[in-house]
Nucleic acid binder design. Structure first.
Lengths: 175, 175
DNA sequence: ACTGTCGGTTCGTTCACCGAACCGAGAGGT
DNA sequence: ACCTCTCGGTTCGGTGAACGAACCGACAGT
């Protein structure tokens, strides 16, 4: 999506944010990072995104301090991309956006629900846990559960399969 | 930003949302609508956006039920664009994104603060009022105040001037 | 040496964005 | 009647980003 071309005179923090995370694909990459996707190839297969665009977005996110690139094996050398604290705070943007979309545009049953791992309660639209006293639930305490709905044509990539099979704690490696 | 080209197989409410509000300029238009901007010409001057793009985005937002196009005078016929309830719920996305950006990327003093109109308290990062018992503050109860910071080169369009001059209740017409 | 995997880069095509010009409806002035 | 101005667009040629298929280099295993 957006670029900095004309945003620079906006004097607005929203414009700054959109230059970083407002481009096409970027928020979907960050969402996958919450799901525990960490490797280039897994992002690629799950998102079905052009390779060059993925490489570019990952570099931008690393530059912005939203993802950290980290060596996880040496032979052969392989890096993974994990959310930083700064990136983790984007949960407060991504969850309300998903929840808004689900409320207004969902067709059929939902494919995924998000629950407070400590008590199993489904999060409210603002991302809080109603049974634990309306406290904010940080993403690390959230579990993504397969929902009652099933997609018409389920995707077969490893990430989609794993997310359909079992509940999964956000931020933990998925594969 | 984004388009629907490859988002359709994502089976994800986030992808659906991004097809609507993830395109370049769209969230800045919605933000201006919260500020009380309602007319084509005011969006145009404040955002410095290509005319064709603005017309396209407004039409998309009206189609999605996020804005409502409403006749406000008959001679000559003029329409204004106002947020619907569905659009108003995007405050829970826009405010956390602004707040995230402000925390991590702000340079100097902030140009704008958001306060609970009932008590004057500045909203916390999640958009709640700390002094009123951490309750969610709907956008209609929020006042945008000119912040302590001043832009290096202040913009002179009517919207920017009005926002710099005085506090203003969100959703109320600005001009 | 051959094959396969992973994580990219390169490159030609397509498509959205850009920005400047143009346009039509209507108001107001003379 | 005519001219001029404002408002809210549409049109159009040029540019830059996204797309997708091919290519590439490092390394492991056989």
């Amino acid at each position: 999506m957006p670029l900095g071309k004309s945003y620079e005179r906006q004097n607005c923090s929203l414009a700054t944010a959109l230059e970083l995370v407002g481009e096409r694909w970027t928020l979907l990459i960050v969402r996958d990072a919450f799901y525990g996707v960490r490797r280039y190839g897994d992002f690629l297969a799950h998102l079905d995104i052009p390779r060059a665009v993925l490489a570019d977005r990952l570099a931008t996110l690393v530059d912005a301090g939203i993802l950290e690139r980290r060596r996880y094996q040496d032979a052969p050398p392989r890096d993974e991309y994990v959310l930083t604290d700064r990136g983790g705070e984007l949960w407060s943007v991504i969850y309300p956006l998903m929840s808004w979309s689900e409320r207004h545009f969902a067709v059929g049953e939902s494919l995924r629900t998000f629950r407070h791992a400590a008590c199993g309660t489904q999060l409210d639209p603002a991302g809080r846990c109603p049974t634990c006293g309306n406290v904010d639930v940080p993403p690390g305490d959230v579990e993504a559960h397969p929902g009652p709905g099933v997609p018409a044509e389920p995707r077969q990539d490893p990430v989609s399969v794993a997310l359909r099979q079992r509940p999964h704690r956000l931020l933990r490696p998925l594969l």
